[in-house]
Structure formats: structure tokens, C-alpha cells
Amino acid sequence: MTARVGVVTFPGSLDDKDAARAVALAGADPVPLWHDDADLKGVDAVVLPGGFSYGDYLRCGAIARFAPLMGEIVPAARSGALPVLGICNGFQILAESHLLPGALTRNASLRFVNRDQVLRVENARTAWTGGYSERQEILVVLKSGEGCYVADEQTLDHLEAEERVLARYVGENPNGSYRGIAGVTNEHGNIVGLMPHPEHAVEALTGPSTDGLGFFASILTHLGARTPEPA
């Protein structure tokens, strides 16, 4: 059965169409989900895309966490039953929803960063990274103004000890994230937050590489879903 991956649109989402395209290129059926609904439409997994949900008022992701649809996503994800990928603003929403530890704050440079970025995959055992190898380096896109991942030292130590650091920046730290962390996962490995954008690196024509497609292909393998036969 072909997997159905929901892509949530909030007011201010910018990358929902890109995420849906990445899902389709990987071989799944993208299912549009609206923030104000309370129906997950039976999807097998969910992507929270990048952008500026609710205009980033108050704090990035702070209002989106109270969206009616998040009331369905949070308990399902927390139970381990629903795989969720939060990209950029989606990562901020996951942190604000307390589905992932830490917070995303203003870049250390106080400037918006937009660049191609090399990441090292530290955990290739999650629902979203199973198609990669441990310590594999991939090239994706980073574009954010509040991408600095912060947490207290005890939390950081726990993340390290439990191997829940998903990915790190390679080379110069682009935003001041503590310990170079670009993404983290929960204890079940079904919830992943990533500041850079894998959905912008799925086609050679439009991205710096196709390395980001592995996130969307990995979830299909995790779900045991088949991909459509070529026409």
C-alpha cells in the first residue's frame, strides 16, 4: 500500500508545496492538511514544513502549537504511533509543543542565513533517517533567522548519551547552535526536528544535490510502504 504523508499548512507556511513535492518524488501520496482542522485524514506520517507560521508572532512556532490540528498530532506523535518531521519552522513548532527538547533562538550573527550547508548524519536509525549511513555527510539548504539550537548542559548531555542528536553542521557553525546541532529526535525515533531544508535538495535541477530525498524515502521504508510502479 502506498504511504500517505500529510503536509500541514499554517498561515505563513512557505515550504508546504516543496515538502509535498519531495514526498511525491519519494513515492508517497502527499495529503494536504489545514492547521484549523482536527482531522489527520488517516495519514501514516506528517511533515510540518518551513515558513513563518502565524507570522512568527510571540515566538516562532509558539502560536502554531495551539492549532486544532496540533491537538491531534501531539498525542499521536508522543505515543510513538505517528512519525513526524518538523523542518525549520516545523522544528520550532515541535520544540514549542514540547515534543522535542531545547529551543530555537535568533542566529548568533543576528542575521538571516541562506546557504547550501553540509550536514553530518549522526543518527541513521530514526523513521526519517534510516536510508542514510551513520556519519554520512549530505548537502542540503539552510535558510533561517532563528535557527540557533539551545538547551541547558544537562539536556545536551542527555541527548548525546542517548544518541538523539540527529545531525550536526559540518565546518563553520552557521547560526551558533550549541554543539553544532542541526537536528534532534525523540526517544522513539519517530519525531525528528531539522533546521535545514531537505525538501530543497531533492532534484539536481533545483537544488544543490539530491541528498535530502533520503528523509522522505526513509519514511516509506520505515512504514513498509510500496512505491508506485513506473508508468
Results as ranks from 00 to 15, higher is better:
K41N: 05
P83N: 09
L82R: 05
S144Q: 15
G55R: 09
K17I: 07
H35Q: 07
Q117M: 13
A45L: 04
Q136V: 07
L119G: 06
S144K: 12
D116P: 02
R120C: 07
G86E: 12
W128Q: 06
D29Q: 12
L48N: 06
G51E: 02
H98Y: 09
F66W: 09
E72M: 11
I73L: 03
G55L: 09
R65Y: 04
A81Y: 01
G51M: 00
E72I: 06
M70P: 01
L25Q: 12
V47K: 00
E96A: 12
A64G: 06
V43M: 06
G55A: 10
L142G: 10
D44P: 00
L99A: 09
V46P: 01
N114T: 10
L119E: 09
V31A: 01
S79H: 09
G50M: 05
S144M: 13
N89E: 10
Y132I: 06
S97Q: 07
A24V: 03
H98R: 15
P83E: 12
A127E: 07
L139Y: 08
I138C: 07
G145R: 11
V31E: 01
D37E: 15
G147Y: 02
A77Y: 02
L85E: 05
A20L: 01
V121N: 05
Q136C: 06
Y132E: 11
R78F: 06
P49Y: 01
A22S: 04
V74F: 06
Q154T: 15
E137L: 08
W34A: 11
R59W: 08
Y132L: 10
I87F: 00
D18N: 08
S144E: 14
L48C: 07
Q136F: 07
A151H: 05
A45P: 00
N123V: 10
S133V: 08
S97G: 04
G51Y: 01
P68V: 12
E72N: 08
A62S: 14
V118I: 14
R21M: 09
Y54F: 13
D157Y: 03
V43R: 04
S97N: 07
G55C: 08
A108C: 08
